[in-house]
């Protein structure tokens, strides 16, 4: 296979960015050290914001849910309401939006700066493929971190809802758990929420990495790419959430 001509190559590369990256994922498996470093900067560094946001979202859900449910005398189902909204929607979606803001923008800025300071070019000159060495480990780290972060978010949210519901408002904590366990389905709710978070993690990391790799290599170009990452990720996450919800929870 001869390398294609210049016009073709410049057309091909952005479009096959994803394909090239996916083919690079295999080489990451052979070098866990690269993945571990990225799990740190993508996952661990996003943990705190996810933890705290999850706690507050759960507490607010507990409070608002209680006000509405107590009108119907249905405070006992508070646990179900908090858990269902977290597991199905808020956990995957809000943690993906936070992830795009925290890790996605950082990824774009990092890759964009590497491009602007000729680090990517320099790597190519050292016969190291930047897509394999830089992009692929980050995509994999994003893909793995997102479901874990969403799981933490939902768990902390449920506990936050319990703190408010049982601690402040006097909902029976036995009922809180029992209603949740009775009505939440493992396959319909937990697994679907998990699938959502995997999809969002993939899309958010992919957008962030592509925007960075595609950025105009100047300070202005990088800052614009960072903005685009957050905006495009938010759109894609919310749009995909609608589609996935329609597909998953459509008939049951």
């Amino acid at each position: 296979m001869r390398r294609p001509g210049p016009a073709l190559l410049s057309w091909v590369e952005p479009r096959f960015f994803l394909l090239l990256t996916l083919s690079g994922l295999f080489s990451v498996v052979l070098r866990p050290r690269l993945l571990l470093n990225q799990l740190y900067s993508v996952g661990v560094l996003s943990f705190l914001i996810i933890f705290i946001s999850g706690l507050f979202v759960g507490m607010v859900l507990g409070l608002q849910g209680y006000y509405i449910l107590s009108d119907f005398g249905a405070e006992e189902t508070l646990g179900l309401m908090v858990a269902a909204s977290l597991v199905r929607e808020l956990g995957p979606v809000v943690s993906a939006l936070l992830f795009a803001g925290r890790a996605g923008s950082a990824l774009t800025a990092e890759i964009g700066l590497m491009k602007a300071t000729e680090q990517l070019s320099g790597m190519e000159m050292m016969a190291v493929d930047p897509i394999k060495r830089i992009i692929a480990p980050r995509l994999l780290a994003g893909l793995l971190s997102m479901p874990l972060l969403a799981g933490v978010f939902s768990t902390i949210g449920i506990i936050g809802g319990l703190l408010v519901g049982s601690g402040m408002l006097g909902v029976d904590d036995g009922a809180y758990w029992a209603q949740m366990q009775a009505k939440l389905d493992f396959y319909d709710d937990i697994v679907n929420g998990f699938i959502k978070s995997v999809v969002f993690g993939f899309v958010a990391s992919w957008i962030a990495l592509f925007e960075g790799y595609d950025a105009i290599p100047t300070s202005e170009g990088v800052s614009r790419a960072t903005t685009r990452t957050v905006v495009n990720s938010a759109f894609s996450i919310l749009g995909l959430d609608f589609i996935l919800t329609a597909l998953m929870f459509g008939d049951s």
Binding site: T117, E118, Q119, G122, M123, E124, M125, M126
Partner: peptide, 15 residues
């Protein structure tokens, strides 16, 4: 390329 070295204007060190 392994047999070529290139010195970029900025140095292009991995930060």
């Amino acid at each position: 390329r392994k047999r070529m070295g290139m010195l970029f204007q900025s140095g292009a060190l991995l930060t």
